[in-house]
Amino acid sequence: QTVVIGDTTYHLNNPEAAQQIAKELAKKYGLKVVISGNTIKLK
């Protein structure tokens, strides 16, 4: 699972954790979560 935040890319072996982290950050910073395949992007 790949999480992309701005110009930073994180690789996590746990998809659920990756999605949870993405949701928390999106909520905290008012970002939009875009999931395509096994890549999660925060914009």
Rank of each mutant, 00 (worst) to 15 (best):
T39G: 04
Q20K: 13
V33Q: 01
K32I: 14
I35T: 04
P15N: 08
G6Q: 05
Y29G: 01
Y29A: 02
Q19M: 15
T39K: 06
V33T: 02
K28G: 00
Y29H: 04
H11Q: 06
A22D: 00
S36V: 13
Q1V: 15
N38W: 05
L12C: 15
K27C: 13
K32L: 12
L42F: 09
K41L: 14
Q20G: 04
L25K: 00
T8A: 08
N13T: 10
E24I: 15
V4M: 10
Y10G: 01
Y29T: 02
V34W: 09
Q19H: 11
I40G: 01
H11A: 05
V4G: 03
I5T: 02
K23Q: 11
V4Q: 11
T9K: 08
K23G: 05
S36Y: 10
N14G: 08
Q1L: 15
I5R: 03
I40M: 03
E16Q: 10
N13Q: 11
A26M: 08
G6I: 10
V34I: 11
G30R: 08
G30I: 03
D7N: 14
I21R: 05
T39H: 04
L25W: 09
I21L: 15
L31S: 02
A18Q: 03
H11G: 03
G30Q: 05
L25I: 06
I40Y: 06
G37H: 04
Y29R: 04
L12D: 00
L25E: 00
G30F: 06
K27V: 07
T39D: 03
P15W: 15
D7F: 15
H11R: 06
K32Y: 11
G6P: 04
T8E: 06
I35Y: 09
N13R: 10
P15V: 10
D7V: 12
K32M: 13
V3E: 02
I5H: 04
Q19E: 09
H11T: 08
A18L: 11
T9M: 08
K41D: 03
G30E: 02
Q20V: 07
K23D: 10
A17H: 10
Q20P: 00
I5G: 02
K27Y: 08
K32A: 10
A18W: 14
K28N: 02
N38L: 07
T8V: 13
E24G: 06
Q20F: 12
P15R: 12
L42R: 01
K32Q: 12
T8S: 07
K28D: 01
N14T: 13
G30K: 09
K27E: 11
L12T: 05
N38Y: 06
K43Q: 12
G37P: 02
A26C: 14
K27F: 08
E16M: 09
K32V: 14
Q20W: 14
P15K: 11
T9H: 06
G37E: 04
P15T: 10
G37L: 05
V3P: 02
T2K: 12
L31V: 07
L12W: 11
A17T: 12
Y10E: 01
T9I: 12
